[in-house]
Computed example of a mutant assay.
Amino acid sequence: MAKTATKIPESEKITINIGHVDLGQVELLVQEGFYSNRSDFIRTAIRNQIDRHAETVRQIIIRKSVDLGLRRITHAELTAAKDAGQMLDIRALGLVVIAPDVTPELARETISALSVLGTLQADDALKAALSDRIS
């Protein structure tokens, strides 16, 4: 039987609260054709703020040694760390995916800290095993 790759979603759904007047102004801009819908407006506003602070973000990423984008944590990587007697302090901005073949025991033996600014995809048992190390 062929092994299927896990599909990684391209985005994360969030919920926000917005004041009535602000929402009305967003709706007006959508009605006038400046944006295709509310989500388009919000994504554009977020991108504009990220662009505005890009240099600051870049400096923080360098200072904190943060992995940017997609960070996959594999069984082989953790086994190599275990064999070398190392504990990993993983910091990422974006998406962290821990491979499904990583056991909670192996993760606890090799991951000292896991800081994710974004989304962590891992088995529930693995998240529970690392709960005291995830920030």
Rank of each mutant, 00 (worst) to 15 (best):
N17L: 10
H20P: 15
S65D: 15
T103K: 07
D83I: 09
R47I: 06
I14N: 02
P104Y: 00
L120T: 04
E10G: 11
A128R: 15
A107D: 09
R38H: 09
N17H: 07
R58P: 00
S39I: 06
Y35N: 01
V102F: 07
M1Y: 07
R52T: 03
V57Y: 03
I73L: 14
V26E: 00
V26L: 08
R91H: 07
D22S: 08
L106A: 09
G85T: 00
I90G: 01
N37R: 09
A54E: 04
A99N: 14
I46G: 02
A54G: 05
K64W: 07
S112T: 13
Q49M: 06
V102S: 11
R108N: 07
D22L: 10
G85F: 03
R91S: 05
I98V: 15
G19S: 08
Q31K: 15
R72Q: 14
L95H: 10
A122W: 05
I16W: 00
E27C: 01
T56Q: 11
E12C: 06
A107K: 07
A81F: 02
L114C: 11
I111N: 01
K3R: 14
T15H: 08
L117K: 04
K3C: 08
D124R: 15
D83Q: 12
E12T: 13
Q59H: 08
G33C: 01
R91T: 05
T110I: 05
I8V: 14
I14D: 06
L68G: 00
K64F: 11
A84L: 10
S131T: 10
T56S: 06
K3A: 11
L78K: 04
S135C: 09
K64G: 04
P104T: 07
T119E: 10
D22M: 10
R133C: 02
V116C: 10
T4N: 11
I14A: 07
V30R: 00
V57M: 05
K7H: 12
A76I: 13
H75R: 15
E55F: 05
H53T: 03
E10Y: 08
E109F: 04
T44M: 05
R58N: 06
I14M: 12
T110K: 07
T103G: 06
D123E: 14
A125K: 15
S131L: 06
F41V: 01
E27I: 02
Q25K: 15
T79S: 09
Y35R: 03
E105K: 13
L70S: 03
T4G: 10
H20A: 14
E55L: 07
E109G: 05
D89R: 12
L23N: 03
T6V: 13
L88V: 02
I111L: 10
L120Q: 00
R38Y: 13
R108E: 11
G19E: 06
V116A: 03
I62N: 09
S135E: 10
L117P: 02
I61V: 14
K127R: 15
A2K: 14
I73R: 04
A84G: 01
I90V: 15
Q86P: 01
T74I: 13
K82M: 05
D89W: 09
T15P: 03
M1H: 11
R63F: 12
I16Q: 03
T79V: 14
I60L: 15
I62T: 08
R71M: 12
